[in-house]
Amino acid sequence: MIKFNLFRLSPVLIVAFLAGCSAPNSTGGINDPYEETNRSWHDTNVALDRAVIKPVSTAYGTVVPDPLRKGLANVSDTLSIPGTVVNDVLQVQLGDAVHNTARFLVNATVGIAGLFDPATSMGLEPRDSDFGETLHRWGVGEGAYVVLPVYGPSTERDALGLVVDIALDPIGHVFGTPESSYKTGLKVAKLADTRYRYSDLYESLVYDSADGYAQMRLTYLDNRHYALGTPIGASDSAEGQATPYDIYEDFYE
């Protein structure tokens, strides 16, 4: 398994990348200067979904009982909490850091290594965060919309955040090989379960739309802006103006 070390990333490349992300969105609200390349990767990802991801997720959802799939997804979520706490601290959201630490301790113990989620019923609901949000709170613009191979829709800021989250992941540093690879396996299992549970929604969005690429782009950006409190088409500084509900929450959670 490839491990990323944040401190080995070239400072010059990071500064250049952040400078690009700081550029304001283009007129019209959607900054997509790489559309031709993005569409190519979108088509490749859809072909991969048809050929591999959908059959695997269908088999997983059919063979593995629902309680076990849900339990494995809970374990994956629990193992991701320490990384969330790191971002809470970097954002100086100390209340969320304490909340998420308590959630981790409860689910890791009472929840039997995270198989169950008693923390939510105790008022310790999930409060997710990532380094993309950390960059947003630090004033870094989201940059252009990009489609990543396999991973799918993102932005320049969130793509960098994804790499840094991998580098900063406490679980990955605490456990060596092969233990650290178990987390990756659990994450894949959760994604397969999500793909199976929301198969109709995903396929209506990507397969049945007149322009699946444009629909996926709008869906991702709308959901991301909702999570950050910035409605689509607005600058990142426009806090607290998101729509009152998130119609894509189930699909992207």
Rank of each mutant, 00 (worst) to 15 (best):
L135K: 04
V46A: 11
D165P: 14
A234D: 11
G143K: 01
L135R: 08
G212S: 08
V147S: 06
L90S: 03
L68V: 15
A19D: 09
P24F: 10
V110G: 02
T78Y: 10
T109P: 05
A119I: 07
T177V: 13
D250G: 03
D32W: 01
A51L: 14
L124K: 04
V110I: 15
P24K: 08
S80C: 11
P67C: 12
V15K: 15
V146M: 11
I14E: 04
Y252L: 12
S121P: 01
E142C: 01
E156W: 04
T101I: 01
T243H: 13
A102H: 02
V85M: 02
P170H: 08
I81Y: 05
A159C: 08
M1T: 13
L191Q: 13
S204L: 02
R217V: 14
Y248R: 09
I2Y: 05
P82V: 12
F104V: 05
Y145A: 05
S235C: 04
A119Q: 03
S76C: 13
L105S: 02
N25S: 13
A102N: 11
P244S: 09
P67W: 10
N45R: 02
W41N: 06
A23D: 01
G139W: 13
R137C: 05
G141T: 06
I171W: 09
L135S: 06
Y145N: 02
L201S: 07
R50P: 00
G123N: 08
F17Q: 00
G212N: 11
S10A: 03
V63E: 01
D66L: 12
N38R: 03
V89E: 00
G29Y: 06
L72E: 06
D250A: 15
Y145D: 00
A119T: 11
E125Y: 09
Y226N: 13
V63I: 15
T155P: 14
E36H: 08
A238G: 00
T78Q: 08
V64D: 02
D43F: 03
W138Q: 05
V56C: 03
G114N: 07
I112N: 04
A23W: 14
N5R: 15
A227S: 11
R195L: 12
P149Q: 07
T109K: 07
R103C: 08
S57V: 12
L9D: 00
D96C: 04
V86M: 04
D130T: 02
T62V: 05
S40D: 07
T58S: 10
I53Y: 15
P126G: 10
A210I: 10
F251H: 05
S22D: 08
T134I: 07
G240L: 09
Y196Q: 03
N100A: 08
H225P: 00
T78K: 07
S235W: 02
I166Y: 15
D169S: 12
H225K: 13
K183H: 09
D200C: 00
A242V: 02
A238E: 11
L218E: 11
F7I: 05
P82T: 13
L148K: 04
R127L: 09
F7G: 04
A102G: 12
S121Q: 15
A214L: 11
A16I: 09
A102Y: 01
I14V: 15
L160F: 14
V92M: 12
H225G: 15
V12S: 15
R217C: 11
G176Y: 14
T37H: 06
T78D: 11
D49P: 03
D130F: 05
E156L: 14
R197C: 01
